[in-house]
Write a protein that binds this DNA or RNA. Structure first.
Lengths: 146, 146
DNA sequence: TTACGTGCAAAAGGTTTGCAATAAC
DNA sequence: GTTATTGCAAACCTTTTGCACGTAA
């Protein structure tokens, strides 16, 4: 993939947001993240690109991006906010390994379709969802995880 | 007057838990709750039954009940923990009205079955789940954004 | 009786905010 | 130049904890 400004940055620009160095840094940290970092971790990664960035700015930027709908906040029950770039595609879900904290992302058309249906049946327009499964590696085969 | 002990109390007794007045109070508050109160609210309701109960005890009791698996902790994204009595039956899900905060509970066999299947396919034993939908009333709502 | 639970207040996280300095447009 | 944004530190809010006292079993 060709290196260019991150998709997040593009969206922010499109929304008329003032693009400061700090916002670019946070945008790139998130774009490059394959995991679901908490704020402290995002701050740590941001510091590597801009040693003077403050955690207050990281918090403010994350709130801003979340409000602008370019990232999603997750909560896996440890009392910290975690973030990921929001995907335009079908929503995806999480399976959290309760022993290791490892998070597996997955999608499922059947579930997505059914949830849509359920919301509609209840008289609602679905505008978001959060589905987290908690599990332990089953001893009966399947794939092994580091 | 003989008050029927709540299902929670029974479970606690069964698990050999020391049943104090405060724990009974919290158990009854939760048993009587039709909603998903946060800790402050649980404390407020508990105070009506025992004006001397402390919020520290409420927190400790909730953690205890949660660990004993008689209640479930929920998080709807407002930074506060909310609680409900855990149901022995199929897990149920939530649809949160983002305009009013109203929470509708629902169950769905198709979704439950599929989630079970997915976890298994990923090599995991499903031990818990959390499914929250966010929506707005779909017809004749009237309200626009705030 | 004795180990366990409680109340209080202080501490501990995580997150937000007031304000003066700074940078984007 | 004007207005929004930043860094710092203090404030805030929810939750946890140390300790002396109280209480269920």
């Amino acid at each position: 993939m060709v290196t260019k400004i991150s998709e997040i940055e593009q969206k922010c620009v499109d929304k008329g947001m003032r693009m400061t160095g700090q916002r670019r840094v946070v945008a790139r940290v998130l774009s490059g993240a394959e995991d679901h970092p908490d704020v402290e971790e995002i701050y740590r990664r941001a510091e590597k690109r801009d040693p003077n960035i403050s955690i207050a700015t990281v918090y403010r930027t994350l709130r801003l991006f979340e409000a602008a709908n370019v990232i999603d906040r997750l909560e896996f029950g440890d009392g910290k906010s975690r973030y990921e770039v929001s995907s335009e595609e079908d929503s995806h879900y999480h399976l959290i390994d309760v022993k290791t904290g490892k998070v597996i992302e997955f999608e499922d058309e059947e579930v997505s379709r059914r949830l849509q249906e359920i919301a509609q049946k209840l008289g609602y327009k679905l505008i978001g969802d959060r589905l987290d499964l908690y599990g332990t590696v089953s001893d009966t085969g399947g794939n092994q995880n580091s």
